[in-house]
Design a protein around this nucleic acid. Structure first.
Lengths: 192, 192
DNA sequence: TATATTTCTTGTCCTGGTTCAATGCGCAGC
DNA sequence: GCTGCGCATTGAACCAGGACAAGAAATATA
């Protein structure tokens, strides 16, 4: 159950067996069926979830009901609303499973306990967030600077697995275009 | 020279006098005139700069010369291309002073030394990056989901100082709209 | 196998925003 | 006190992508 996550963490920093035991002991295992909303906008996010199996997305909804998918997460990714998790403030996004999931979860308390006992991990988490930030920066750039078609092609290249697992209109909402227009882009690409 | 930055850091964690001395001792002070490019795309970013005085922006340029401003930074902000800084890889953005600046800078080496000597700061930096990430997430959402006018109004509310200090076309490139259209949005707002 | 529900496609019309070009404005340099 | 240049405004033509509607496929449910 813990092989994958331990591999993930030890890619960033070396841990002793004892430290790994502490880590694993603090994780809470949960199985969640698909189409479950793990976090509602307005609620406080009390988890950081590592996906051992399954697929999750988090997304925003504006006043008019318009949806924007912030992230798709599959095996070996973490999911949370960090701002809400860190500061116990109401979340401004939703988190929803798209497939049946096996998760390994930290709460704010267990995370603090973990960091207190294994301070090395502070660095791992920082690097994780940094990576996230860098990816998001370049995504913002592409969202603004490139056409729908280029965004779609870029997405396919970067995440070739995702389209096989999630519905197309979710991808549209990730790219920031309408589901209809994505369909048109696709047919145009197929004709070539 | 160090009051401001020390205040900034001690807002997040308590440091002893000795630790503060180590911290300050590792910072490199630099004055830079305006319109200086501190980092070119393709170069390796070897600094994290705290702005003691001045104004800086970082931005992307695509193949067609189209510019997107990622961030305006003024007093009490940090500027860097973290991905490039952390992994010594070529930057994919530019960093440029918009005003004469007084900077306090860390290099990858001094930062590592600092974190080794004052491990507490690992957490400060993590929280800093987390805050950045959260802001960027909601910006991406707004970029996709709201009209040019709403983005502009939101910007004014969030950063009322910036428009007094930077040219309007930079703000347009931050909002992801053309300079001409921002001008039209503004005149429309004034008529009300 | 039939039925319901969700997803995807396709067409038509519409609009927010772009592009290009012209004009005006402010201010730094000499 | 000119001159030149970067910046902001305005207008006209254009277009990428949205909204809506209707139908076709695909998938789940029974």
């Amino acid at each position: 159950m813990y092989e994958r996550i331990n591999q993930y963490v030890t890619k960033c920093t070396l841990l002793t067996e004892a430290e790994i035991d502490i880590f694993n002991g603090l994780l809470e295992y949960r199985e969640v069926p698909k189409k479950t909303i793990l976090l509602y906008e307005g609620a406080v996010c009390n988890f950081e979830a590592y996906i051992n199996k399954g697929c999750i997305r988090n997304y925003y909804i504006d006043e008019n009901g318009f949806e924007v998918t912030l992230q798709f997460a599959i095996e070996d990714w973490w999911v949370s609303d960090i701002a809400s998790f860190q500061h116990h403030t109401p979340a401004n996004m939703f988190i929803e499973t798209l497939e049946d999931c096996h998760l390994l979860m930290l709460s704010p308390q267990t995370k603090e306990e973990l960091l207190a006992k294994v301070p090395k991990l502070e660095r791992v988490f920082r690097l994780m967030v940094q990576r996230n930030l860098a990816v998001l920066q370049s995504r913002l750039f592409k969202t603004i600077a490139t056409s729908a078609q280029d965004k779609y092609l870029d997405f396919l290249e970067r995440y070739p697995i995702i389209p096989q697992r999630v519905a197309q209109h979710y991808i549209a909402s990730y790219l920031g275009i309408s589901a209809e227009f994505l369909s048109k882009v696709r047919t145009k690409l197929l004709k070539k």
